[in-house]
Amino acid sequence: MDNRTGRNEYDRHWKRVIHSLFEDFVAFFSPGLYEMIDWDKPPDDLDKEFQRLNPDGKSRDREADGLFKVYLKDGSEQWILVHIEVQGWKDTDFAERMFQYFYRIFDAYDKKIFALVIYTEDYSETYTPPRYEYNFFGTKLSYEYNVYKIAEQDENELLQSTNPFAFVILAAKKALYGKTAAQPTKLELKKQLLRVLAVMKDRLQLDKKDLLTLFIFMDHMIKLESQYQQEFNQEIKNWEGGTMITYEDELKQEARKEGREEGREEGKREGRQEEKIEITRNLIKLGIPLDFIKKATGLSEKKILEIKEGLEKE
């Protein structure tokens, strides 16, 4: 699995857990905002609209993001926007792009915006400041947004939380700790999380849908080699703290669903690549300069030269 494929899979699981537990998500990160929202009106997912607002460049391969429309109890304000970013890689332009997102969203909707960035990696002192500042000969602006750093969270507080989304943060923190750990250590981390989830299930009276959502997120955050995953799968059948629960059928369905999604995405990528190659072939035949072809197709110079060489051999 290359880095982009791995990042896309990582993004997908973050997006899924946020979408599935969105009400708990808002309550966890902004209790004040949660109290203002009219939850009798389902939030609207503006993901497709948000993608059209994306700044150009590296943002296309960025970590998980999302935009939701929520309705408030206060009739004087019909609705606001919740802008979410899950950031897991160092990006010196991140604060600037957060500002770009803000003004594009504000320009498109002219509504109030709650912006939140969740940092999933530990960059210590190299975190991007939670603001974008601009100053040019007396023209100034400063844009600040909410920041949450998973690496800095207290595990005991997460364990005591009555919000199911605390388990998401705990799983992400354990995954960060186990990122460079040996397989036996990763296996033990997953077993610990499974025991925590079993207790949380009873303490918070989680329904099966939410329980499965949390389990799937945790299962994908910490990847195990085959033999260790098999041992973990056996552990699933013997949960501590209560009822025996088996998720094999649900997990098989999930795997099939992911396979279909990945297949569709792979098909789309292959289709776009073939289209770019065909456009490149036509441009080469017309004698278009290489620099123009690079800009028009996004292909590398090496790839374009390979296509040109292939044409010359035909």
Rank of each mutant, 00 (worst) to 15 (best):
M1K: 12
R4E: 10
E9H: 13
D11L: 02
K15Q: 13
V17G: 07
I18S: 03
H19T: 08
E23I: 08
E23D: 05
F25H: 07
F25A: 01
F28I: 04
S30E: 14
P31E: 04
G32M: 06
G32Y: 11
D38R: 10
D40T: 12
K41A: 14
K41Y: 10
D44W: 03
D45G: 05
D47K: 14
R52H: 06
K58L: 09
K58C: 01
E63I: 00
A64N: 01
D65C: 05
L67T: 01
Y71S: 14
Y71L: 14
Y71D: 06
L72W: 04
I80R: 09
L81E: 06
I84G: 02
V86F: 01
F94E: 00
A95I: 01
E96Y: 15
E96T: 04
R97I: 07
R97K: 11
R97V: 03
F99A: 08
D107C: 07
A108K: 15
A108S: 13
Y109V: 04
D110Q: 14
K112C: 03
I113D: 07
T120M: 00
Y123C: 01
Y123G: 02
S124M: 06
S124I: 00
T128V: 15
Y134T: 12
G138N: 12
G138R: 08
G138E: 11
K140A: 13
L141M: 14
S142H: 02
V147L: 00
K149Y: 05
N156W: 05
E157D: 12
L158A: 08
N163H: 01
K173H: 02
A175Y: 04
L176M: 10
Y177Q: 12
Y177E: 13
K179C: 00
A181W: 15
A182W: 08
Q183F: 11
P184L: 13
T185K: 15
L187M: 09
L187G: 07
K190S: 08
K190I: 12
L193W: 09
L194Y: 09
R195C: 07
R195G: 04
L197D: 10
K201I: 13
R203P: 04
L204E: 09
Q205S: 15
L206F: 15
K208F: 12
K209E: 15
L212R: 10
M221Y: 03
I222V: 10
L224P: 07
L224F: 13
E231F: 06
E231V: 15
F232K: 05
F232C: 06
N233E: 14
N233H: 09
E240F: 07
G242E: 11
M244V: 03
M244C: 02
D249W: 05
R256C: 04
R264D: 02
E270W: 07
G271S: 04
Q273V: 01
Q273K: 13
K276I: 01
I277T: 08
E278R: 12
K285C: 01
G287F: 11
P289M: 07
P289E: 10
L290I: 14
D291F: 07
F292Q: 13
K294S: 02
K294L: 13
K295Q: 12
T297I: 03
K303R: 14
I304Q: 05
I307T: 03
I307M: 04
K313I: 00
K313M: 09
E314A: 12
